[in-house]
Computed example of a mutant assay.
Amino acid sequence: MTDAPHDTVGVVLAGGLARRMGGGDKPLRTIGGRTILDHVLARLAPQCGTLVINANSDPARFEAFGLPVVPDTVADHPGPLAGVLAALDWTAEHRPAAEFVATAPGDCPFLPRDLVARLHAARLAGNADLAIAQSGGQAHPVIGLWRVALRADLRQALVEEDIRKISRWQARHACVTVDWPADPVDPFFNANTPEDLGAAERLAALLPD
Rank of each mutant, 00 (worst) to 15 (best):
L88Q: 09
V178T: 14
A102V: 14
V74I: 08
P109V: 01
A45C: 11
P141K: 06
T177E: 12
D153E: 14
S135T: 02
T35Y: 12
L207G: 03
G137L: 01
S57G: 13
D107Y: 05
G137I: 03
L145I: 09
L207C: 01
L206E: 03
V176N: 12
E63V: 13
T177A: 12
P96S: 06
P194Q: 04
A171I: 05
V70A: 04
L37R: 06
L44G: 05
F100L: 15
M1P: 14
T35V: 00
L44Q: 00
A92H: 11
W180H: 08
L124Q: 15
V101Q: 05
D114S: 03
F62R: 06
T30C: 01
L115Q: 00
I53G: 11
A139F: 08
R164D: 05
A45W: 04
G144I: 11
I53W: 09
A131K: 10
F100V: 02
P78T: 01
H6W: 06
A64K: 10
C48V: 13
T91R: 01
P141M: 12
D25R: 15
A131D: 05
L17V: 08
S135V: 02
A174Y: 11
L124P: 07
G79P: 04
H173M: 10
C175S: 08
C108E: 14
D186S: 08
D76V: 01
N127H: 13
F189K: 00
L119I: 04
G126P: 07
P112Q: 09
H173F: 10
L41P: 05
H140R: 13
S57V: 10
L206Y: 04
D114F: 05
T8W: 12
Q138W: 08
V11K: 07
P141C: 14
M1I: 15
A200C: 01
R29L: 01
A86W: 09
D89H: 06
F188H: 00
D72M: 11
Q134A: 11
L197D: 03
N127M: 10
G144P: 03
E63D: 15
H6F: 12
G23D: 02
A152D: 13
G22I: 12
V69N: 04
A98D: 07
V142I: 14
G198I: 03
L41R: 09
V148S: 13
A128R: 14
A157S: 08
D38Q: 08
L44R: 04
G24S: 02
L150N: 15
A122Y: 02
D153G: 10
T193M: 02
P27R: 06
I143W: 09
A55Q: 06
R29E: 02
D76S: 08
A82E: 07
L115W: 02
E93N: 07
D114Q: 04
V12Q: 00
E160V: 15
V142E: 13
A128M: 15
R61Y: 07
R118Q: 12
M21P: 00
K26T: 11
A98F: 04
G49Y: 01
L28A: 00
V116H: 05
A139R: 10
R34V: 03
A182S: 15
A171C: 11
Q47L: 00
G198V: 06
I36A: 10
K26S: 05
P46A: 13
C108K: 11
A42L: 12
V69Q: 01
D7V: 07
G198R: 06
G126S: 14
D114P: 03
T35P: 02
D3K: 14
N127F: 10
L203K: 07
